[in-house]
Each structure stands twice: as structure tokens, then as C-alpha cells.
Amino acid sequence: MARLLDVIREELDLTGTKEGCGEGECGACSVFLDGKLVNSCLVPAAQAQGAELRTIEGVADGEQLHGVQAAFLECGGAQCGICTPGMVMAAVDLLRRCPQPDEAQIRDGLAGNLCRCTGYVKIVDSVASAAKRAVAVAEQALQAGAGANP
């Protein structure tokens, strides 16, 4: 019985998903399975049969970074980088469920992903910045739409 993590890393050769603990504690192996954030080290591969899988490799749109990734880069959310793919997945998941989180909500939403480098401050800031940017983008789009449709 393979773990989903092993299938991702070894069979699909998508090595952006990391193994930090193998016990569902660190979150470095976080991926989306049918749109839900899961620890791929705890998912039997058999249970992923027919499901939609999205890993860190599928977060950016080609060369265009996802807003969360761009914010991590800008705000210093990544240090050694080993927790970063999982952390980005958790942040994307949080912003999907809760597009404008306050600091406590961010801290709760990321609490399943351990980071030993940052003390979480820059990660929290990255997520807050990504949320803000998403609002700005949405407003721009709205205004552009309003302009085009008098």
C-alpha cells in the first residue's frame, strides 16, 4: 500500500512535495486532493484513485507565479524552503475558504504546517499581503469591467 506522497515523488517525479516527518505533523507534504488540503503522507494511494490531484508544481500558471507564491517571495515567507511548498498549499487553501483572513485566522489556517526558520511572522505577512493583493486585483477588474460597460 503506497502512500500518495510516494506516488507523487517517485512515480510522478514531482519532487516539490516534501516529506518532513511522515506522520502528518509537519505539513510539508500538503497537496490538494479533489480540492481539499491533505497530508499526502497519510493518504493511501488507493484512496486517490480517480481523484483530482494538485501539487505545488501546479500552483503557478506557467511562468506566472500564484499570488501567494509572489507574496512569499516578496515578504520573506521562504527561508530554507523545505516547508514552503506545503505552506503555500495551506495558504492557497486558507484564502480559498477565507479570502480576507485576520491574523488569528491565518495563524489557525497554517497551524498544520511547521516552519523551523521563520517564526511564522513573514509567512503570516505573506498570506496577508496575498489576500490584500487579491482584493486589489479584483477591484481593478471590477473597475475595468464598469468602464467597459457604461
Binding site: G27, K36, L37, V38, N39, G112, N113
Partner: peptide, 9 residues
């Protein structure tokens, strides 16, 4: 219980 990823499964 755990955190989000655990709670989803």
C-alpha cells in the same frame, strides 16, 4: 483535532 489537512481526512 490536528489541523486542517487532518480534519479534511
Amino acid at each position: 483535532t490536528g489541523a486542517i489537512a487532518i480534519q479534511n481526512r
